[in-house]
Design a protein around this nucleic acid. Structure first.
Length: 936
RNA sequence: GGGCCUAUAGCUCAGUUUUAGGUUAGAGCGCACGCCUGAUAAGCGUGAGGUCGGAGGUUCGAAUCCUCCUAGGCCCA
């Protein structure tokens, strides 16, 4: 007789194989069609809101794993906060302006900067950004991310552009903006400023010259005194440079305050150089060691003077940390208009940002000696002049890495141009920003230190760019007296225009059409004005998103609860947002900042084309499904670098299957269970079932707390572990007999189903923020009536199944004992080969008195160990070594175990070995099954 | 070169700070071996894996505190 038909075997259509790649789109469709995210928001309409403000990704390429990771983390938060009872309106955004797109567009059109009218470039840029916004939006959606995809914020929206301009004007009218020269990369051939991204480094042959700067009489007098020497012959300070043409712009020479310098006599000349360069110089200049007169620290020389090598003027001696012993003489010639470091140190010493070179690389006509000459021609003239005046100590040429223009491939120069700045000090922006982040919570906590140390050191913010794809610096300048209009009243019309038509009118309309009628200069009364040509740094665009989004959209709120980005954004968006917000609102735009690391390969190295270790999310979706990417995001601790590799993914797929299959088993065994009628109250449940439910409520607590703390890897680990241990290994394995073999409506079976019901209900909700597709899949396959049409409309479970401390301890002891009992069973199976299934085993146990209370219920242990017979004995007879196992526990003192094969016959229905099998009316069956069969 | 951060079994993570540094360092997976064949491209069990990146130091005692080094990441120069 085949008894299988009399069993209550699991039934479900929920497939074991996830087939994620194929099935995921169906759930996406379901969410979209049923407007699930909108429904969630509607359901939480009156709930307290949680504002996670999306940092806008740049719309110029497909998403990569980093962008995917970031958005999935945000999605996990949106979903978990929502299921924890908050209203979470999530407005995605895109950063649209800026150089990378403008460059890409120029490249695609095959034009150089300035070759096309700004409006044409701008329109092409807009199209380009739109294209990638649409691509990225679909890619984000494909990952299962919930958001208001139909109403994102774009920094190129007219309304947003108007906000950018308005916020800039707030800085302007509060006197936090100023204009000053600053060196930038400059291509004299293309007659344009270059961004760092437009610079290529290539080998270039330059002059290498050592130039003497003669001490002034006063300085020499001081030095004689200072070093206690008497030298009346000329003393010179030796510097090294590869750009003789910057010497006309020289305003200072810099020593490193920490280095030692020497006064030496070399070829009858008195010179000053760094001690650490002497031997290198001897080799380089092919000279013998000099005679050393004196050694000194340069601090005392600060603010003393030397003579310019060929102009009738003086140059200042200053101190600068960036001077090194790597090359040259340890003393650096400073031209603040022609180098970044020169500029910075120039600001410190209040030097002029002096630029004698025009935009095409020619000296202005009035400059002595080199006026009107191109810088390369000037190099020759300057060399001649130096020789003539005996200021050239040594001349050579070197080949070194030098910046070139990526378009015309010519060498470029550093040249100061007027730029706009937001002052860190005018209105105490730095101090205010530092003060405000004290109230911000950082995860991880070191983020605060990182952000504040950047704020402490950063220079004034250069916000102007000489480009067209962006929001203009809306400033009018009086054409007569040069006065800038600062009051907002002059700009209301411009802002309104931008709101309606975008920024194009600024580029095409004359200023009198943008200004209010009859505007005249408040200073000189002149009616004509010039528009500023530069545009704003894109970091300003996204930096004011609190104004363009949080303040603008009614369901949002300023400040936000959370900003969540990669750790690079300490210098980026966290930073610019803070400055913009503090500078105009006086407070930080966020209450909490969460940062994640970067995606790296198995060895912890960054992903790069050259290393060939780049993994694309698109490929992973195709091979594994988006769900596995989501699981990966959750499983890794994002506070550090986040590794990804084939092995990691394989492990995750396996873990995924375990979770899925466990749920499948629960579903399959609840096909005839109606929670409304069949649920058994916790108090009435048997002990083991109560213990599992207690463990379940511990899991729920832990998982909910971990979501709150944004520790998603804990969520993943806990859920997975619960499926493996409490469910699969314990209650499913042990109670399977009840499910299959007892009467369908029996207490034992319903009790087990009750546990299954709670476990499944909890798991599906707890996993939903991470395993969104699978949770929805499970939800749709629940065999009983559902409270909502989507799992995302439900709340996290809040069951609390408590046991007394005594009960908990007892069960921990039971499990400890169980582990010990399984060991001799395994020996019986593997070594002695006397049993296969544990059901074939009989176990006899001798134990110390302290263990007796746990072991006195024989039938419980038969059930709990799934064996044929368990007996507690006072004494164990000598075992037959071939046919029995005798085992003394090492872990639990005083526990001796004897295992042998049972002689009981197997019940053909439930496969248990029972003494009564063969003695009943139906000899195939055990007593229990006999009764069940009779009942059926 | 500077600032910040990271380094625990093959993999992913606990344990380290603020409940004071304390006996043989934990979990799950994977692996090996065995079992089951009524979750079956499933399930159960047992076992082997770590000088806690390296070297010093503090201490009776350190994965945990200090110093240095190595490798890697982010941001600057």
């Amino acid at each position: 007789m085949d008894w299988k038909g009399t069993l209550n075997l699991p039934k479900t259509d929920f497939p074991m194989k996830a087939n994620l790649t194929e099935r995921e789109p169906k759930f996406l469709e379901f969410w979209e069609k049923e407007k699930i995210y909108q429904r969630i928001l509607k359901k939480r309409a009156n709930a307290p809101s949680y504002i996670l403000h999306d940092g806008p990704p740049y719309a110029n390429e497909h998403i990569h794993l980093g962008t995917a990771l970031n958005k999935i983390l945000k999605d996990i938060i949106v979903k978990s906060k929502s299921m924890a009872g908050y209203k979470v309106p999530f407005i995605p955004g895109w950063d649209c302006h800026g150089l990378p797109i403008e460059l890409k567009v120029e490249q695609e059109l095959g034009v150089k900067r300035g070759e096309l009218p700004p409006l044409m470039i701008r329109s092409a840029c807009k199209k380009y950004a739109e294209k990638y916004i649409n691509i990225q939006r679909e890619e984000f959606k494909r990952l299962g991310v919930f958001a208001k995809w139909d109403t994102p914020y774009l920094t190129m929206d007219f309304s947003y552009e108007a906000v950018i301009a308005r916020e800039f004007l707030r800085f302007l009218e509060t006197d936090q903006v100023y204009r000053r020269k600053k060196p930038v990369f400059w291509c004299p051939n293309c007659v344009t400023a270059l961004a760092e991204a437009e610079v290529e480094y290539e080998l270039h042959k330059s002059p290498s010259i050592y130039v003497k700067f003669l001490l002034t009489e006063e300085t020499q007098k001081f030095l004689n005194n200072f070093l206690n020497i008497k030298i009346f012959e000329p003393i010179s300070i030796l510097i090294w440079t590869t750009t003789p043409w910057t010497l006309p712009a020289n305003l200072a020479i810099a020593f490193n305050p920490d280095l030692d310098y020497l006064l030496i006599k070399w070829d009858e000349e008195y010179l000053i150089v760094a001690e650490g360069r002497i031997s290198a110089l001897c080799a380089e200049l092919n000279k013998d060691l000099p005679k050393i007169i004196s050694r000194f620290k340069p601090k005392e020389l600060e603010n003393k003077k030397v003579y310019h090598p060929f102009y009738e003027k003086e140059s200042l001696i200053i101190l600068a940390d960036f001077v090194t012993l790597e090359t040259g003489t340890g003393i650096v010639h400073i031209a603040p208009g022609h180098g970044e470091e020169d500029y910075q140190i120039g600001l410190k010493y209040n030097l002029e940002i002096y630029v004698p070179v025009d935009q095409e690389g020619n000296f202005y006509p009035h400059i002595p000696l080199v006026g009107g000459l191109n810088i390369y021609k000037a190099n020759e003239i300057i060399l001649e002049a130096l020789k003539k005046r005996e200021k050239l100590f040594y001349y050579d040429t070197i080949e070194h890495s030098y910046p070139h223009c990526w378009r015309c491939k010519n060498p470029i120069i550093f040249r100061a141009e007027y730029q706009w700045f937001i002052s860190m000090s005018a209105k105490n922006l730095r101090e205010k920003a530092l003060k405000n982040i004290e109230n911000v919570k950082f995860i991880p906590s070191w983020g605060k230190n990182r952000l504040s140390s950047m704020l402490e050191k950063r220079p004034d913010w250069c916000i102007s760019r000489q480009r067209v794809w962006g929001v203009p610096l809306t400033v009018f300048k009086c054409s007569n007296c040069g006065e800038y209009l600062k009051e907002y009243k002059y700009y209301e019309k411009v802002i309104k225009t931008i709101e309606k038509e975008g920024c194009d009118p600024w580029f095409e309309k004359p200023s009198n059409e943008l200004l209010p009628q009859n505007t005249t200069c408040p200073k000189c009364g002149n009616p004509n004005f010039e528009k500023e040509k530069d545009i704003l740094d894109v970091w300003f665009d996204s930096g004011v998103s609190f104004a363009g989004v949080l303040e603008k959209i009614p369901e949002l709120r300023f400040p936000a609860d959370l900003y969540l980005e990669g750790s690079d954004q300490h210098r980026g968006w966290f930073h610019s947002s803070l400055l913009c917000s503090v500078g105009t609102r006086g407070v930080a735009p966020y209450k909490e900042i969460l940062t994640h690391g970067f995606v790296v390969d198995a060895q912890g190295r960054k992903m790069s084309k050259s290393l060939g270790n780049v993994i694309h999310p698109q490929d992973l979706i195709e091979e594994y499904g988006a769900e596995i990417i989501r699981l990966w995001v959750s499983a890794e601790d994002y506070k550090n670098d986040i590794k990804i590799s084939k092995e990691i993914l394989t492990r995750l797929v396996e873990a995924y299957r375990k979770i899925r299959n466990t749920c499948r088993f629960l579903i399959g065994n609840l096909y005839d269970f109606n929670p409304k009628k069949d649920l058994i109250s916790f108090e009435k449940l048997p002990e083991f079932e109560r213990y599992i439910l207690y463990r379940l409520s511990k899991l729920i607590d832990k998982v909910k707390k971990s979501y709150e703390k944004f520790e998603f890897h804990i969520v993943y680990h806990e859920i997975h572990r619960f499926c493996v241990i409490e469910l699969s290994s314990l209650i499913i394995d042990i109670n399977r007999d009840y499910l299959y073999c007892e009467k369908p409506k029996s207490f034992k079976r319903r009790a087990t189903q009750t546990v299954f019901y709670y476990a499944l209900d909890s798991l599906v909700k707890l996993m939903a923020p991470i395993l969104s597709f699978t949770a929805e899949d499970i939800w749709q396959n629940l065999p009983y009536e559902k409270e909502e049409i989507s799992v995302f409309l439900t709340d996290f479970p809040s069951y609390s199944f408590e046991l007394t401390e005594k009960e908990i301890q007892k069960w921990e002891k039971y499990l400890e004992l169980r582990t010990e009992f399984l060991k001799p069973l395994e020996i019986a199976r593997k070594d002695k080969k006397i049993i296969g299934s544990s059901l074939e085993a009989e176990m006899f146990v001798k134990a110390d008195s302290n263990l007796i209370p746990y072991l006195s219920n024989n039938s419980f242990w038969e059930y709990f160990l799934m064996i044929a017979k368990f007996e507690l004995k006072d004494f164990l007879p000598k075992p037959n070594k071939n046919k029995e196992v005798y085992y003394i526990s090492e872990e639990i003192k005083g526990l001796e175990i004897n295992v042998k094969a049972t002689s009981f016959k197997k019940c053909e229905r439930c496969w248990q070995r029972r003494p009564e099998v063969g003695t009943l009316e139906i000899p195939d069956l055990c007593q229990r099954c006999y009764e069940v069969i009779k009942f059926l």
